[in-house]
Design a protein around this nucleic acid. Structure first.
Lengths: 161, 161
DNA sequence: GGGAGCGGTTCACACTGAGGAAACAGTCAC
DNA sequence: GTGACTGTTTCCTCAGTGTGAACCGCTCCC
């Protein structure tokens, strides 16, 4: 899905179309024409004449917003994990572990790496990780995330329906 | 709450500040400077020189987005907190605390910052904050707001279903 | 086939410190 | 004087963390 460029006011019909389709769009405004005010985060405008750099920056901004608004990724920050509008507080040790899992959603992460992440000092009982994984499982399930075991390989974080 | 104007890149510190406070801001970009790409819907930019009409249009756009994004947000004014048609009176100390929480709905706010907000003079027992947080919890629950604890980090205000 | 062993899951417990809450007392506005 | 606001003392609960042990299922080997 890309940002659509259109001229204003000549492409008005197309604008209506794109708005209702929820597509991102950049209005290229004719000189001496009022810029239409919209609260839609998928809409932006630029006045002609404009430098290629500004045009790119506007497009990049829209792309970024598109990405953010449609992203379905868990976020780890400051002792909370957020996902799809929900959030759950996560204590320090488990935060370090889950941050690693979040960085590689869908990929298997070895027990060793998780252990290193959780206890940077290096002292971690084998079982300590197990227990924290169980606790993480419980916490994550509250916001629609689940942790799968890959026997002999490690764990992976998955987003559930 | 208004849209803040600032110059880029000279006002960088101010930008960081406004971003973390969740305030709407319009960056006035120096000629020949790259425009910073941000996905934040409360941030926009305009290149100098610009017509007063374009400036107004950018500000109006931000205001509109601010309005939309805050339509389901709690409001703190004059010793009352309003939310979704309900309101609850809140005494001065707690008002200062909850105002900070409201400014950053959904984000974790540290006990230290809350303490500074509640007692600008600087004298606050650890427990004083605890007690007021408890009292705030009770008040906020009446209008559909809840305060979550993030152990060791602080508190965050959440809108409940 | 059956038992040993491994990897993983879960529970129960203990320790510690952070946070929560009741109750009380002082202050201030009405 | 009454009641709301505020802060303090004191006690209690609970979350975070680590440890030990029971348990389950699979694999491998005798």
């Amino acid at each position: 899905m890309e940002v659509e460029l259109l001229h204003w006011p000549v492409d008005e019909d197309r604008l209506v179309e794109l708005r209702s389709a929820g597509r991102a769009r950049l209005l290229v405004i004719d000189p001496d024409t009022e810029a239409p005010v919209s609260g839609d985060l998928l809409e932006d405008w630029i006045r002609r004449p404009a430098s290629i750099h500004d045009l790119r920056a506007r497009i990049a901004g829209l792309e970024r917003r598109m990405e953010l608004s449609s992203s379905d990724m868990p976020i780890a920050d400051d002792c909370v994990v957020r996902f799809r509008g929900g959030l759950v507080p996560v204590p320090p040790v488990e935060m370090r572990i889950v941050t690693l899992l979040i960085e590689r959603v869908g990929a298997v992460v070895s027990r060793e790496k998780l252990s290193d992440a959780g206890w940077p000092g290096g002292d971690a009982d084998r079982n300590a990780l197990d227990v924290h994984m169980m606790r993480l499982r419980r916490r994550m399930s509250e916001i629609g995330l689940s942790i799968r075991t890959v026997r002999g390989r490690g764990y992976l974080l998955e987003t559930t329906v």
